[in-house]
Design a protein around this nucleic acid. Sequence first.
DNA 1: TTTCTGTTTAACAAAATTGTTAAACCGTAA
DNA 2: TTACGGTTTAACAATTTTGTTAAACAGAAA
Lengths: 200, 200
Amino acid sequence: MIAEAQTEVVIKEKAKILFFQKGVLNATTQEIADEAGVNRALIHYYFRSREHLMDLLLEEIVTAKKNRKRAILLAEVPFRQKIANYIEDALEQGLQYPYLENFIITETARNPEKVNLFCFKDKLRSSELIKDQLEAEIRKGALPPISAEHFMVNLVSMCNYPLLAKNVIRNVHGMSDSTYHQFLLERKEVILKTLFTNPH
Amino acid sequence: MIAEAQTEVVIKEKAKILFFQKGVLNATTQEIADEAGVNRALIHYYFRSREHLMDLLLEEIVTAKKNRKRAILLAEVPFRQKIANYIEDALEQGLQYPYLENFIITETARNPEKVNLFCFKDKLRSSELIKDQLEAEIRKGALPPISAEHFMVNLVSMCNYPLLAKNVIRNVHGMSDSTYHQFLLERKEVILKTLFTNPH
DNA sequence: TTTCTGTTTAACAAAATTGTTAAACCGTAA
DNA sequence: TTACGGTTTAACAATTTTGTTAAACAGAAA
């Protein structure tokens, strides 16, 4: 075996850029090959079919994300800090792969049965992981009453949506690329404050 | 002219269902024709090309949405009520066309220059429309300090994302179809509370 | 009835996309 | 050097998808 530049890995990495960074959710095999700078046939040589490559990419990236989120939510730190960590990770991951969420959404819209396959076999159930701590905060009066599900959905929504809707937001609010980036960094604090503003 | 069943309108309506309700963002002309129950050639007869139909659909639905949002934000009502109206409209519109946002996001990801074309020629700039009222609320102490941009992005994120991510959320939190629907209705109040919890 | 016009259809053509294959390539080791 | 292995390429085949067209159809009006 030669594999000097690890073509297989290059293809996967470049494909992730195309799908999850650039948001070309229906990229053709030719586009993937161009992005990776290789002959199109190599995609079939290494990955059999386009579909097979897609499944592989998705599984890799979702697994990585899942593990990170799990570690963050299981860590023994104060609740507010835990959520701050979650936001930090979501935005960092999101800056790297803004369209991952979009990809999952689109794929699960077309074939809802695939959700189980590539997503959540082991039932992370993030709301379960924060439930006790959240309820304790509410009892302390540090948070207004809210269910764990709604809290998590609020959190994930405010983290992911602005990344997804980059071009829309930039246009609506007339932001340059750097202004938008600055805006995203500000959001780390904004989201935390929005979730944690103390009840009166 | 005959046009008994208004084939042209039927095609557009059914295509909207396919794209914006069912989320089949890369539906083929055959799929559109099937959904509308007509011969595929009729799509070209009435709309010249697939692309032309797409642009038309998008413009129609975005214009409608824009007008509704504009009316809501320009209405002379107390701020909190105005935002409640916005949420109500976003969720109702979202329940009808959950994948409209996804469509816009995906299209603008692939060709960012198209944003201007189908989206915001007249610069709605929703954050401008609420800026004065929002700042007045903050001065009154009814709201914690936040910029109009972040406030709007928080609002839109919490409204749109859960609609987009229906299948993901249902899976992660193990919700039945009716449970999810109930969850969405609850969110009207939840989003409002999350945005408006008084600062201490 | 016949003609006319707009609508619909089936069949065809063209383009794009995926998947296959045989040959070329290129290090390495005999 | 030669032979061998995995790798890469160009060319081809099959399929899918878009777009075109000529003919069929159906109601209205002469």
